[in-house]
Design a protein around this nucleic acid. Sequence first.
RNA 1: AGGCCCGUAGCUCAGUUGGUUAGAGCGCUACCUUGACACGGUAGAGGUCUGGGGUUCGAGUCCCCACGGGCCUACCA
Length: 915
Amino acid sequence: MPHELPKSYEPGAIETRWAEYWIKEKLFSVPTPPLGDTRPVFTLLLPPPNVTGRLHMGHMLNQTQMDIVVRWHRMRGFLALWLPGTDHAGIATQMMVERQLASEGKKRRDLGREKFIERVWDWKKHYGGAILDQMKRLGASVDWDREYFTMDENLSRAVREVFVRLYEEGLIYRGKYIVNWCPRCETAISDLEVKHEEVPGKLYEIRYPVIGSRESITVATTRPETMLGDTAVAVNEKDERYRHLHGKKILVPLMHREIPIITDELAQPEFGTGAVKVTPAHDPNDFQAGLRHNLPQIDVMDEHAHMNQNAGAYAGLSRHAARERVLADLKAQGFLVGETDYTIALGKCDRCGTVVEPRLSTQWFIKIKPLAKRAIEVVESGEITITPENYRQIYLNWMNNIHDWCISRQLWWGHRIPAWHCSCGEIIVAREAPAKCSKCGSSKPKQDTDVLDTWFSSGLLPFTTLAWPEKTRDQDVFYPTTLLITAYEILFFWVARMIMFGCHFMEGHKQDSVMKKASGWGAKKNDSVPFRQVYIHALVRDAERQKMSKTKGNVIDPLDIILRFGTDATRFTLAAMAAPGTDIAFSESRTDGYRAFANKIWNAARFMFMNVDRVDPGLRPVEHAVPTAGIPRFQASALEDRWILSRFNRVTKEVNEALATYRFHEAANRIYDFFWGEFCDWYLELIKPRLMSNAGDEARTACGNLVNLFDAAVRLLHPVMPFITEEIWHAIYDGKPPLRSVALASYPQVDEEQIDLAAETEMAVLQDLIVSVRQLRLDLKVEARIKIPIELFVHDAGTGISIMQNEEAIKRLAHVESITNVEEWRARQPPSRGTTRFDVHVVYERKIDVAFERGRLTKELEKIEKETINNRKQLGNDQFLAKAPPRVVEGLRKRAEELSVLHDKAKSKLEELGR
RNA sequence: AGGCCCGUAGCUCAGUUGGUUAGAGCGCUACCUUGACACGGUAGAGGUCUGGGGUUCGAGUCCCCACGGGCCUACCA
């Protein structure tokens, strides 16, 4: 038998099968389009997950949204390129391999740099692909032929090129500054990689004796151990209390070092004692003050944050131990004069949680202001739009306060800085290793040992993945990328840096003008931007709204959810909950509900096939390879046909609009309501008699409509639920589809001609009637099997005709034996119901529950009266009539009439009961 | 310190520019194995939209304050 679908919906088997098929068939591979191609183009760069990563809910949400958008564009005829790849993740990957080594009792230095890097590549080969394999399970429609890794040779070459150019332009410099240092990772990290945490601490007051006087000056500090490196004490010039001490010298307790008292704005009279110790080698503010006053920089710690020989007697102690010892000694010698509780914003390494140490060291930096300038302009001018809009301001605020970016890392794994140091002191920055020093001619310049911050290379991806610095056809077509969908967390890390680099290195770039225009970007002036739109997605929290974290143990594993409910249901959940700007509290009950939705679709399909196979086994939908409006071959004769066709078109319109504005939840909900609430609940029920009919072509036509409608609905849903729709779509064509995948079929578009307001209104009245009778039946506790007669009064001829024409449907769906037209008063006899269009009375011998019915009616009447009061108040208000739009006033007037009718009915029925 | 977001039915969430009667899923209640589906069908109960002011003809929606919850940015010791 054709069209066979298993009896029950089992997502697991279906999904793995299609996921493999899509990859095997290279369905989503996009070859370079030829010159003269006029198609619209859509490019999306996958935010590269870490090679060390495992799929989490954030990825899942991110990828679901991207896949929806990409599939939608592809089905609308766009040349849709989605570029996948992974990030080499310097610190994380190095940590991973170091851990592996540790289990063998080895350290990275035992192996040496080269061997270590070999190990990392080994590791990458074995475990690095995990997250991409997981992506494949999600059905992500990426172009696997273009998969990249940030350490690939071509991308590495581009990184060197960028570094050299920036250096030559004076935008990269090297210098000795205070940087954030992670003593565990043994590397510098950028400001962004430091996470601040408020912890209770103490503010210590230490007395420094003034030389040549009996006086002393008291400073406040949260880090007493750094006093060992103090080279001054600062007071504010305006502070009268210390005026007499200007120019005096003081003695650093414990170290017996003479240091000056300086006047500097660093010291604020209101805070603490108004005097502050200055430790240029251990605090960024003090560092700046030190430069202003030409103070010595005494570094008292080593790279592990242990005290060094400059710390005198404290050498060898950890910073924590040193603090204890220093405090004890100060106390013993009478220098510690106070300690108060104080909340400290402690900086910790984002990666490993170790307390970061501000450390004086020589690093490479990017002078960021010149790059930021253009990155601000393109957002301000709207060349790049950011959704939701509040992130635009956040971006601009950050950009306007940006600091230079430390890009060197003391790691082994990463892009090694293309600078060579000669013994003569010369530094040669070059694309390839120089044979000899350009200054002294020495033949052995050594390459800088540092590597670049991982974000340095990922910031280049929008163009380096398109062959930059070469100029290629791909670049002309696919750059700028169209959209970036990502998490707020990396707005600064990544998004901002891509914008800066893109605007800088792609300046003057022009996208293929025909394709640009076809894609809808004709009005955009700037093609140097890395993307035209940014969509920031929500954070996925657990059902209790808590942020998921490993330490809390509340992490929801998407693969586990997928295993239990299917990928389609999981995707649908995330889409349906993804209202822009709001976090998602993921709840399994929702996913469970959407699995039921998938099951509903499944069974509706089985029902369709059952009928098709009986009526016309060769029946196939009209092929829709090219975008067509509405459902052209749908033969709308009966009311329900016109109605469902209209509803389909309306929903199609809404879904397309929702997707265009990233309102994923709206798109998902529209489809859900349509498919279940309208198509299954009403349409299928209404056409059952015709499907079963033996008369002429009736069943054949009904089947034809059904198949064409179902096919269109499947295409409408496909971007959100790719697997079940693929399965059913192939089944519709009995395994011999006109295209290799529904993903290549066209996306439904609205045909305004097929929107039929009259049919929708007429249908609504019928639904009201059927529901009214059903309500009465339940109120009267009529047994389900029993059919009952109803008596009806209609208020207008149109309704009368409509009810007559659809008599059989009413009888069947409301379980009615006969319909008799009666006078109004009779139709209002309890038990009855009514709307402004009709009154219906149910003929049933059993007495109604008078008390219950009275209660119900009283409640109804109250509601009507309440609304009536409100309604009259408004209509009686001249201001309202004068100022409100006519549409609203008209609506209220119409409602007033309805209310009066409804009021009379309820009232008279109540009186009826009273008798 | 500055900024952002949230508080709507028992639970999880919608509610685009302020406009008529505030919605969905899950859960709950009653009835139903009607020939696709019990992962189902039919109907129902359940909300003074956190509280208090204000703007407006009109506020869940805009403004202010308070309370509660979350997040981000920041070099004040």
